[in-house]
């Protein structure tokens, strides 16, 4: 139960309950404002009836020709608002905007291969693994981790060319993205 609305710039002052969670990265001003300036309709927030920010999604539209698609850059829900279907609502919104406004062929996202919970959730939403990116996540030391590039075709991709079977075995290097 929430209000799904566009992210407002001053929400940055009040998103601590979401961003203090260790897995949610806080970026610099330019990062958020660039998204707001270019894709204001792909950066949305879920607000609770009492006015607390519960989570948000930020995305962009990118690619050329048949690779033109919506991309989920970040999606996060504060710990106390998980298991309420908020991510579901936000993903639907991003997919809808990618389809109706940007006329994309698919929506994609990257996820750590170890993040079983998230992968399961995305599969439930209709996403499948398109490829595995070696060492996509690297945080300095030896903490390298592969990412799954997961995709969901939109109606424009009638022949479902943007997805493949067994993408888990389709291994690429980050520089080839």
């Amino acid at each position: 139960m929430s209000e799904l609305r566009r992210f407002r710039t001053t929400d940055l002052f009040r998103f601590n309950n979401v961003n203090l969670d260790v897995l949610t990265e806080t970026y610099n001003i330019s990062f958020y404002l660039t998204y707001l300036a270019r894709w204001p309709d792909l950066f949305c927030v879920q607000e609770s009836p009492s006015g607390t920010i519960m989570g948000y999604i930020m995305g962009k539209a990118e690619g050329r020709n048949k690779d033109w698609h919506g991309h989920v850059t970040a999606i996060t829900v504060a710990p106390e608002y998980r298991r309420l279907g908020l991510a579901d609502g936000m993903m639907k919104l991003l997919e809808n905007v990618s389809e109706k406004i940007y006329d994309g062929y698919f929506v994609d996202l990257f996820v750590r291969v170890s993040n079983k919970v998230a992968i399961g959730m995305y599969k439930k939403f209709g996403y499948s693994v398109f490829r595995r990116v070696n060492g996509y996540y690297s945080s300095g030391d030896n903490n390298e981790e592969d990412a799954f590039d997961m995709r969901k075709p939109l109606p424009r991709d009638e022949k479902r060319e943007s997805v493949i079977e067994n993408g888990e075995n389709n291994i690429v290097k980050p520089e080839d993205l």
């Binding site: 566009r6 407002r8 710039t9 001053t10 001003i29 330019s30 404002l33 660039t34 707001l36 300036a37 270019r38 204001p40």
Partner: peptide, 17 residues
Amino acid sequence: MIVQAYKYATFSKIQEF
């Protein structure tokens, strides 16, 4: 970023920024 908002003609965000 205000400059960016003009560049992409995102008028809903200029006052906000």
